[in-house]
Amino acid sequence: MKTQDTVLIALFAALIVVLSLVPPIPLPAIPVPVTLQSLGVMLTGAMLGPVRGGLACSLYLLLAAIGLPVLPGGRGGLGVFFGPTGGFLFGMALGAFVTGWLARSWVRAPGESVRTVLAYGLACIAGGIGAVYLIGVPWLASVTQMGLGKAMMAMLVFIPGDLVKVAVASWVAWRVERVWPILRESP
């Protein structure tokens, strides 16, 4: 792992912090204002690849765990990890890894714009939504003794917002990778 990789991991963890602290954005037709935290996670995976992306997200979680207010709303500390939504945090680290893995496998050299954006999009859906909910929903279900099906239904309200973030992350990743290709050389 070269110096450049260590620095990228650190700076993208910092980017996730900044995006988490941007005030939630109300979107039309979506009941809950969205935070940019998962957007940061998806972008990190898409741009840095699986290993660096997963490590960057883990570093972000470590900062929260040691008591820094880097979660949306200025929250932080161990409380969130031990609460009903803790699974979603761990899911994000997995999500960054999955997004990175798929992006690196599917995204070919830039040029075919529509295909590239779609590839990023699928990678973000699998990682940023799929992996996150894979861990978050069962965790929520068991902590609240809700039952898996009901927990999943409760989370459905967030999916539209997440899909908007997937679109943004894919577009941004494609635009940036065109001028600054770093995904292809990722470990």
Binding site: K2, T3, Q4, V7, L8, L11, L15, R175, V176, W180
Partner: peptide
């Protein structure tokens, strides 16, 4: 809109990473 700021933010972060390294 925050979403419109993403590309410049990410590009500058990448540039910064190169210089810091």
């Amino acid at each position: 809109h925050p979403l419109a700021l993403m590309v410049p933010l990410v590009v500058r972060t990448l540039k910064r990473a190169q210089q810091v390294a």
